[in-house]
Design a protein around this nucleic acid. Structure first.
Length: 280
DNA sequence: AGTAGGACCTGGTGGC
DNA sequence: TGCCACCAGGTCCTAC
């Protein structure tokens, strides 16, 4: 499985872009209507039919498919959602909730065991005020994400720095894995109040966030167990994780056993030696 | 306003 | 072996 954060969603978008650009939607089958948030399932299907896919992009952890006729299909994979291209004649795997039939005989299948994932279809003109997207914060891999902007984000908040990093309305795309990895690389204890970071630490954290995300993308994301992307390939970044999922194992930097704690309800892995909590 | 915690969900895991 | 409680976590919602 995969926990789709920015690098995983980016990988899915890049993979699907080659296949989907220029394709026409022949029809839609919805097996689990609750997956389609809006409009209601029947309108969703009829509005999609006949449209051409003209662009694919990512915003935070959202996938956006631009369609002819100025419509946009927005998809969020949440925890266990997957988008897979298959031939029509291939049997549907379990938990296939929506199928978008393409005019080349293939299908774009939305598969999601836990059924947290969602999709929306809306006019492109409404995108700027569409709440889930309009509320998103900075894109960490664009030039708007500067050390200064990170500093401005952290400085007024007493919440744990990790909680701030996970807040999508401030920074869009980090999830539990990459937040833990970035904090470890920056040598910052995840429970530190965001406002307590020194200028040097903010700079390290800024660099670490960029590095882990770029490396994640370079390795096609992080894969646990049997996840594959739209082309049936696995990600490889799980082999480079330094703390996430490694509680009790030695820190790869110093050998100290990786520790585990809960922060804002999330399991958090960190190295007590590399990421000390400074006494004050 | 900012923060905390529960709800949503199911597959995998570990304990007995 | 079989059963079951528990855990995983992104986002929304409610409560303080």
């Amino acid at each position: 499985m995969v926990l789709p954060e920015l690098p995983e969603v980016e990988t899915v978008v890049r993979t699907l872009r080659n296949i989907l650009l220029g394709q026409k939607i022949a029809g839609v089958n919805i097996f689990r209507p609750e997956v389609v948030k809006e409009p209601e399932a029947k309108s969703f299907s009829s509005l999609l039919a006949g449209r051409e896919i003209t662009a694919l992009r990512r915003r935070g952890k959202f996938i956006l498919l631009s369609l002819s006729g100025d419509q946009v299909l927005v998809i969020h994979l949440r925890m266990t959602g997957r988008l897979v291209i298959s031939k029509k004649e291939e049997k549907h795997p379990p938990h296939t909730h929506v199928i978008i039939n393409l005019d080349d005989g293939r299908e774009l299948r939305f598969i999601d065991p836990r059924r947290f994932g969602r999709m929306w279809l809306l006019p492109a003109a409404e995108l700027p005020v569409f709440p889930p997207l309009a509320g998103l914060g900075m894109e960490p891999l664009t030039e708007e994400f500067t050390v200064t902007r990170l500093q401005e984000m952290l400085q007024p908040r007493r919440a744990p720095v990790k909680a701030v990093l996970l807040n999508q309305s401030l920074l869009a795309g980090l999830g539990n894995i990459y937040a833990d990895e970035a904090l470890h690389r920056a040598g910052i204890h995840p429970a530190r109040p965001a406002c307590s970071l020194t200028a040097g630490e903010v700079e390290s954290l800024h660099r670490a966030i960029g590095d882990v995300l770029k490396e994640g993308i370079a390795h096609r994301g992080t894969t646990f167990r049997d996840y594959v992307d739209g082309e049936g390939k696995k990600g490889g970044f799980q082999n480079f994780l330094r703390v996430y999922g490694r509680a009790g194992e030695p820190c790869l930097t110093c050998g100290t056993p990786v520790a585990k704690m809960k922060i804002c309800g999330r399991t958090t892995s960190y190295c007590p030696a590399c990421q000390p909590y400074p006494a004050n």
